[in-house]
């Protein structure tokens, strides 16, 4: 009788162990897919100011430039032609405006007793100032889509040119201080060549198992002779191994071929967006 109970408990304990083992093997797989961080990145910051800002923001900027809005390529990632160099400075530029607004209404609160109306309906003065600001931002963040653009345009700048290259359909853009000037196809080809090269040497074991929404944005500064002088990680994906692999590949492609002769500036800056889908 004693041995019987002994074996009974042995069986129960074995079963419990196997339950624990299976429980430990399964659950991680599901949980990794739930987090969706990257989708919120290309938010139109100008839109946060209200209806006016949204209208004049990036959407209209596109029209001004004469670049047709491209539909997302179905099999690849969405072509979000958000300026890459653009976003980080944007909030900084934007915050003073917002603060001014608050400060205005606050100061009025102290003086007069109807601050709510003032807040709800911004004065003409404020509105015009906002629009001016938005136009300024818009100017600085001009971009175009290299692959889709009919008439490539570049804003030549003194050095600080920004490009963005994203996903399969790479959007490359330049932002600068100067006026509009047609981009020369050599530069365009050069940038695409750089992207191709990076893509070729960017290999990572087990990439297929990563979340598809990992996104890393890196801007690199290329000198005239093709050396990469600066690598700047604008946005980390959150996965260290993934980011590391990108930095490694960028270091490994250095030096790049020298810049085409048509580029007048000493350095150009190109932004890349790395998505795991590129590799698999």
């Amino acid at each position: 009788m004693k041995e019987e109970t002994w074996f009974k408990w042995m069986v129960i304990s074995t079963i419990l162990h196997f339950i624990v083992i299976t429980a430990l093997t399964i659950p991680f797989k599901k949980s990794t897919k739930r987090i969706d961080l990257s989708s919120s990145y290309s938010v139109n910051l100008v839109g946060s100011l209200g209806g006016t800002g949204e209208k004049i923001g990036i959407t209209e900027g596109r029209g001004v430039e004469g670049v047709p809005r491209t539909e997302p390529v179905p099999e690849k990632k969405e072509v979000r032609a958000t300026p890459k160099k653009g976003p980080p400075p944007k909030p900084q530029r934007q915050t003073p405006v917002r603060r001014e607004k608050e400060a205005l209404s606050l100061s009025k609160k102290k003086v007069a007793q109807k601050p709510l109306k003032e807040k709800d309906v911004p004065s003409k003065d404020e509105l015009s100032r906002l629009e001016e600001r938005i136009r300024e931002i818009k100017k600085r963040t001009e971009y175009f889509d290299v692959t889709k653009a009919r008439s490539p345009v570049v804003q030549g700048g003194q050095g600080g040119q920004t490009g963005s290259l994203k996903g399969g359909s790479s959007g490359v853009g330049f932002g600068g201080e100067g006026g509009l000037r047609p981009i020369d196809p050599n530069t365009q080809r050069y940038i695409l060549g750089v992207w191709e090269r990076i893509k070729e040497s960017w290999g990572m074991p087990g990439i297929a198992s990563y979340k598809k929404d990992l996104e890393t944005i890196v801007t690199i500064k290329i000198r005239k002779d093709g050396r990469i002088v600066d690598i700047n990680m604008e946005k980390r994906s959150g996965n260290k191994i993934y980011d590391e692999s990108i930095l490694r590949v960028l270091r490994s492609v250095d030096p790049l071929p020298p810049l085409p002769s048509t580029v007048e500036t000493d350095t150009i800056e190109i932004g890349f967006r790395f998505l795991p889908g590129e590799l698999s």
């Binding site: 083992i21 430990l24 659950p27 991680f28 797989k29 087990g206 297929a208």
Partner: peptide, 16 residues
Amino acid sequence: MDVSIINNFTGGALSL
């Protein structure tokens, strides 16, 4: 390490 090992990071603890 080969592909399977890195794959296992997305699996459970014991799949290592």
